[in-house]
Design a protein around this nucleic acid. Structure first.
Lengths: 217, 217
DNA sequence: GAGCCCGTGGCAGCTTGCTGCCAGCGGACA
DNA sequence: TGTCCGCTGGCAGCAAGCTGCCACGGGCTC
């Protein structure tokens, strides 16, 4: 019996995992970077359809900090939430799509590559369990969608809070900019604006102010 | 080429992963429940020995919330920290041991079982990357060992708090150093130490942490 | 006194952060 | 269509921050 399979390309993935999505019984958890992954070919919609038909009782979806900045992704999150899924935003980027179904198998996505993205599907209990436990730990500290979006809106818009999060994560500007999908220049521009709004003269000071205002994203 | 191998029992694990531990080049990250795992047969000591000899530059070890309660584990954590490893305590339990070496391969432990614990060793990039990203996210929100243990009492000495004040005032290093009557070099040294104690990766983050801890000087 | 330890501070080289300037792009408007 | 406007992102140059290295000096033991 093979415990682990590696798949290259989205087409192949859809073909090979179709039955997995419709087999969801109890729980479906998913960590996603953004919407773009496997949005190609309506794969996502097909998956959704199957999810809806299946008896998945608990659906949890975790996004990276960049996700709420994107309009389409935000809409998608609302839609999910409306269907009873629990949606949260993590402070740290999640560049690798990760799905765990019923704690029985896991689907992990690699990075984009010329020959098509690489996916690994596994049923190895140690891997599934380990990934699940880590997911749980991240989930625990992630912010609920509702809280994230409605929290302290007056002062800062969504994007600013996203930047704030990135800053709080301790990433360098370069990393943060990449994670948020903007150029280094723009990211720094955002940071500068933020410092100005907070009336801070240094990043450290901005950190303190942000903390005082309870703005952790 | 096999990307993934499942191993049953600690003896087998030690035999099969020996070469992996000694091959660490850049980074070694590990999420552990407690000390007891593979403590049997001195496996851990052997691994440590190899780690020490290898050129691992960055070692990070993440424990579950239960770990610091145990005397022996605590001692072990100190020892690790003393050797330059970064140790943090997560808020959520991590029942599955997880190791990622150089972002090249991952070792994941399953649950205890009569026939011996089951381990999976994999080099599949998607799995390694996904696990690493999750680890990173958990790490981000975990508490530094030093902070965790010394929490309330005089966390920072007078000088550190003075530095903190200077930082919070928004002054540049040069100004701050002059005001505090110390050289620029020393001031920066103090700042670096401070960041380390706070477990912060950037000044901004340190600001947030400082605020959280109510340390405004 | 000699030798040792430890904290300091200068220096140098590098990384990171900051910002003005300008080109490009897309939407709004006449 | 052309023009204007606002936002973006590349570039370049500078400022600030970071850290390894080493030399100096004070306090310590032997």
């Amino acid at each position: 019996m093979t415990e682990s399979v590696t798949i290259r390309g989205d087409l192949e993935l859809v073909a090979r995992t179709e039955h997995l999505f419709s087999s969801v019984r109890e729980e479906f958890v998913c960590a996603a970077r953004d919407l773009h992954t496997w949005n190609h070919l309506g794969a996502r919609h097909a998956a959704q359809e199957r999810m809806r038909n299946s008896g998945a009782r608990r659906v949890r979806k975790l996004y990276g900090p960049a996700a709420p900045a994107d309009q389409r992704t935000r809409e998608h999150m609302y839609e999910l939430a409306g269907r009873g899924a629990r949606v949260r935003i993590a402070a740290t980027a999640l560049p690798h799509e990760t799905i765990v179904i019923d704690r029985r198998f896991a689907i992990l996505a690699g990075v984009d590559a010329p020959g098509g993205r690489e996916y690994t599907v596994t049923t190895a209990p140690a891997v599934v369990g380990g990934v699940y436990a880590l997911f749980e730990a991240v989930w625990e500290h992630a912010t609920d969608l509702g809280v994230f979006l409605s929290d302290e809106p007056p002062l800062l818009d969504t994007e600013s809070r996203t930047v704030l999060r990135a800053l709080g994560s301790g990433a360098t500007d370069e990393t943060a900019a990449r994670e948020l999908g903007m150029s280094l220049r723009t990211y720094r521009r955002r940071v500068a604006e933020l410092l100005h709004t907070l009336g801070a003269d240094s990043r450290f000071q901005a950190g303190v102010r942000a903390g005082e205002l309870g703005l952790h994203g």
